[in-house]
């Protein structure tokens, strides 16, 4: 399942003024895997995501996606890169003045001007249904949806261009356990149908156990470990032990084993 790395980050350094978030950080994401990224609050998980997708300019370091160095690309190459990945932001970031279906159509309209309206609306609808929403959500506005539905609608938009790489920022945060489990299932299912590689930031221990092939732990400004979860549990780093073997971590592991 896991193949060549499609994202490689080496020697990344990010800072805000005096505050250094990342120092000499390395991480790689392999083709076809679901990589979970964990770390304490404020450890720079979202900053790492923003650096990779080009929203935050790092001070130092090299980021390669699909073999291309991100900050050395021409505008055209960058657009080409952007249509090969989808991003699900933490709060969905749906455009509030557009309906769900129109939100899904935005990237399609932007990149492929010659698709006719009929096909556009068909595409939007099946993407929405594939993301696990009923078809009658299509003409609704984001403010009419619940938090979980909004996440799914945002996922439908992230998948609009059939990306091969999907970035998810805390997709199950704020969902009830049933909704979160269903979302995990959905990601697994989409991964196998669409052949996705997933970069997943999460605090949800259940998600980590249920769907991640490998987990990267960010602490002390760098990735201190990146391995399948079973191997992480063997390490005796105090933070990792506390994170995975604390009361909540054990509960999630038991659930997984059961």
């Amino acid at each position: 399942m896991s193949g060549d790395p499609i994202i490689t980050v080496t020697g990344l350094r990010n800072s805000f003024g005096e505050h250094v978030v990342h120092e000499d950080l390395d991480i790689d994401v392999r083709q076809g895997e679901i990589l979970g990224v964990v770390g304490g609050s404020g450890s720079g998980k979202s900053v790492l995501l923003r650096s990779i997708i080009g929203l935050q300019r790092p001070d130092k370091g090299e980021i390669r996606i699909f073999g291309e160095q991100v900050d050395h690309t021409s505008a055209e190459q960058e657009l080409d890169l952007r249509r090969r990945w989808g991003v699900l932001f933490q709060n969905g970031a749906l455009f509030s003045t557009l309906t769900v279906a129109e939100n899904v159509q935005v990237p399609l309209r932007e990149f492929y001007k010659n698709i006719d309206e009929q096909l556009l609306s068909e595409i939007a609808t099946f993407k929405i249904v594939m993301s696990g929403l009923p078809a009658d959500t299509a003409p609704k506005y984001p403010s009419e949806l619940s938090g979980g539905m909004r996440k799914r609608a945002a996922l439908a938009r992230a998948l609009a261009l059939d990306p091969t790489l999907l970035f998810l920022d805390e997709p199950t945060a704020g969902l009830d356990p049933i909704g979160a489990a269903a979302f995990d299932e959905l990601i697994l299912e989409l991964r196998s149908t669409l052949d996705l590689t997933v970069f997943l930031i999460t605090h949800d221990l259940d998600t980590l156990h249920a769907i991640c092939d490998r987990v990267a732990v960010i602490a002390d400004k760098k990735v201190i470990a990146i391995a399948p979860i079973a191997e992480l549990l063997e390490l005796d780093h105090p933070w990792i032990q506390e994170y995975f073997n604390g009361p909540r971590g054990r509960a999630a592991a038991i659930e997984k084993a059961a």
Partner: peptide, 13 residues
């Protein structure tokens, strides 16, 4: 997968 997701709907109210 797409045939399962075939459920025509409006895109605007």
């Amino acid at each position: 997968q797409v045939s399962i997701a075939d459920d025509p709907a409006k895109t605007r109210p």
